[in-house]
Computed example of a mutant assay.
Amino acid sequence: MQRICVIGGSRYVGKLLVQRLLAAGHQVTVINRGSTPPPPGVEHLVADRDDETALTAALGSRTFDAVVDQVCYTPVQAAIAARAFRARTARYVMTSTIEVYDPATAALPAVPHGTPVPEDVVDPAAWLVRMDLPWHDATYLESHYAEGKRQAEAVLTREGGFAFASVRSAHVLGGGAREFTGRLAHYTGRIGRGAEIAVHAGALPTVFIHHEELADLLLWAAVATEFTGPLNACSDELLDVRGLVAVIAARTGREPVYRTVAAGEAASPFSFDRHYAMSNARAKDLGFAFSRTTDWLPGAVAEALDASTAQAA
């Protein structure tokens, strides 16, 4: 049994992670602002992670074998966490994102076209941190999501005083009505209505991960391995937007209607005109086995369709 702290943990992947940690026999503490109570058997600390004094007070004298941070979006939040947990945990795992590799949001080292992106393309140990940017502004943060994650990784890498790992998640799907992005519901709805799907002329492939697989990987990263640094988390198999839509269309029994957008024009979710599909080779070398996207995607689509039908009833 290990003592695990989850920051966030009230919805979707975080909630599932807490359930898995409990089922595996670990002692779990959840820290959030109290909007949703954790399941029975979980210690609940109510605190705003942005308030360092309140967070430190809530933690008291507690120590942990590992912390999993589901909701770290800025270097300011990372710096507060680094100070608060420096003497309280030996291991800190932050959930990050594929968006750190998006060439539209930063000047990144060139990767041969079509080559899945490895972790060292974004090195948090060398990334510039700007604490003076308006990270407290919700509008700024939304438009600088990728940069906030890059800088948060950088702060925890350099200032934590604990073994730090960041899990860079692919686009997460699955969960039916619980899927917080609503992107599968977007496609099932549009295909069902015969509405147009806007795509780039040469839409490039990306990578996905099922929400249950991501929860499994986060548990593994927290308690079953000692790797440090960034780790890409994505199911095997690259898929472009047309491949994704084909799976959804097969389940709905309707043919998709496409509209090709001009360069620079907004397109439907997961239609990308730039390459940043990730490589999961490092995680495999460390011992984690991934599923194939097309093995779980039909089931995720079926869940989304069932949820849509239930909501309409």
Score class of each variant (00 low, 15 high):
residue 108 L to W: 02
residue 262 A to R: 13
residue 312 A to E: 13
residue 276 Y to N: 06
residue 102 D to G: 12
residue 154 A to Y: 06
residue 291 S to Q: 14
residue 51 D to P: 08
residue 99 E to C: 10
residue 68 V to F: 08
residue 30 V to H: 10
residue 212 E to F: 12
residue 82 A to I: 00
residue 54 A to W: 06
residue 195 A to D: 13
residue 5 C to A: 15
residue 275 H to E: 06
residue 289 A to Y: 11
residue 133 L to V: 02
residue 3 R to H: 15
residue 28 V to L: 09
residue 121 V to G: 00
residue 217 L to R: 06
residue 54 A to S: 12
residue 112 P to R: 02
residue 276 Y to E: 01
residue 283 A to V: 03
residue 278 M to H: 03
residue 72 C to S: 09
residue 214 L to Q: 14
residue 187 Y to M: 02
residue 258 Y to K: 11
residue 33 R to W: 05
residue 186 H to F: 14
residue 286 L to W: 06
residue 176 G to C: 06
residue 252 T to N: 10
residue 239 L to E: 13
residue 78 A to S: 07
residue 211 H to I: 08
residue 148 G to Y: 01
residue 147 E to R: 02
residue 35 S to D: 13
residue 281 A to V: 10
residue 138 A to R: 10
residue 296 W to K: 14
residue 285 D to A: 15
residue 105 T to M: 04
residue 182 G to N: 03
residue 304 A to V: 05
residue 69 D to E: 06
residue 21 L to I: 06
residue 127 W to H: 11
residue 11 R to Y: 09
residue 137 D to P: 02
residue 247 V to L: 08
residue 306 D to C: 08
residue 92 Y to A: 00
residue 127 W to S: 04
residue 18 V to S: 13
residue 77 Q to M: 07
residue 139 T to H: 09
residue 307 A to H: 10
residue 264 G to R: 04
residue 293 T to A: 12
residue 152 A to K: 10
residue 137 D to Q: 01
residue 17 L to W: 09
residue 50 D to S: 12
residue 280 N to P: 13
residue 34 G to L: 01
residue 87 A to V: 01
residue 10 S to I: 08
residue 308 S to A: 15
